[in-house]
Design a binder for these strands. Structure first.
Length: 188
DNA sequence: TCGCCGATGTTCT
DNA sequence: GAACATCGGCGAT
């Protein structure tokens, strides 16, 4: 079934766990996400709309692709409320289809590390700036909601940020061996 | 297995 | 000029 983006970033981030994402038929099952929104100092949208983050302020269900640390690409899904800079960073996939293509693009064999991290995931799926602003329900993207009813999803502190550590807006499939890093629990 | 470091686009001070 | 939603390679443990 098609994925519904008419919800806030934390809700969408949780529901994306277990969904299947492919780009031109290459990808797998989402096992790790993080939510961001405009009220959050750790978010790219916090300081308002700029040329880089413009697609975060566009319609939900589209891609926001940005360059990280000068070299890597990172893929986000834009969420509700529309025009408010809310989004979900896709951090890791369990590779299921097109594994040979991903191994070739990443120049490694180890399947566990093909998509274990936002930069690695974009390299494996061939995502770059040309996908920024594209709809996630149209080619080359394909996003299918999880068919499993009950998935064990854990949440905790987001990775690589210094602001808003109190928000447990990182979500992951419990026990997955395809995460970018082990989950660390937030403050209780 | 851990931690430091370099590469370097975009934004902010 | 510095920070940053990162990664891979290197040398030290």
């Amino acid at each position: 079934m098609r994925f519904d983006f008419s919800a806030t970033a934390p809700e969408v981030a949780q529901r994306l766990i277990g969904a299947t994402l492919t780009v031109d038929g290459v990808g797998g099952v989402i096992v790790e996400t993080e939510a961001y929104d405009q009220s959050d100092p750790a978010s790219h949208s916090y300081a308002g709309k700029t040329a880089r983050n413009a697609s975060m302020f566009g319609p939900p269900g589209r891609a926001y692709v940005y360059r990280s640390y000068g070299l890597h690409w990172c893929l986000n899904a834009v969420c509700m409320p529309a025009g408010h800079g809310a989004g979900v960073l896709i951090r890791a996939l369990e590779p299921t289809v097109g594994i040979e293509t991903m191994q070739h693009r990443r120049r490694i064999q180890e399947v566990r590390l093909l998509c274990a991290g936002p930069g690695r995931l974009c390299q494996a799926l061939g995502v770059d700036r040309s996908h920024d602003g594209s709809r996630l329900d149209r080619k080359p993207f394909r996003l299918v909601a999880s068919s499993t009813r009950e998935l064990l999803v854990t949440n905790g502190v987001r990775i690589g940020i210094s602001h808003s550590r109190e928000l447990s807006w990182r979500f992951a499939l419990a026990g997955s061996r395809f995460l970018s890093r082990p989950m660390t629990a937030g403050a209780s």
